[in-house]
């Protein structure tokens, strides 16, 4: 078993109204960042886990996202990094 540090991004699914993201987009426009077309605000979760290899660590975290970390009704997740810790 090795230790891994896995980072996950969880964001509101496309098409789901994200009022926080919209408010931030509006604020960025007010600052002159006209190029911003969309902002999605979600969560960044960092897990330290034991797994035989990186692939197994990735698979474990995917299962965690499916069961708890993300809500499959409204959120998408993306495993950002899997690093040996």
């Amino acid at each position: 078993m090795s230790r891994f540090r896995v980072a996950v991004h969880i964001v509101p699914r496309k098409g789901i109204l994200d009022p926080q993201g919209k408010a931030v987009s509006d604020a960025l426009h007010a600052l002159g960042f006209d190029g911003v077309s969309d902002t999605r605000i979600g969560r960044h979760i960092v897990l330290h886990i034991a797994a035989p290899d990186a692939k197994a660590a990735d698979a474990q975290v995917r299962e965690m996202c499916g069961k708890l970390l993300a809500n499959p009704v409204t959120e998408d997740f993306e495993i950002a990094t899997v690093e040996r810790a």
Binding site: P19, Q20, V73, T74
Partner: peptide
């Protein structure tokens, strides 16, 4: 129950 309850639209 189906669906989810998200942050109020006006925050």
């Amino acid at each position: 129950l189906p669906g989810a309850l998200l942050r109020n639209a006006n925050l």
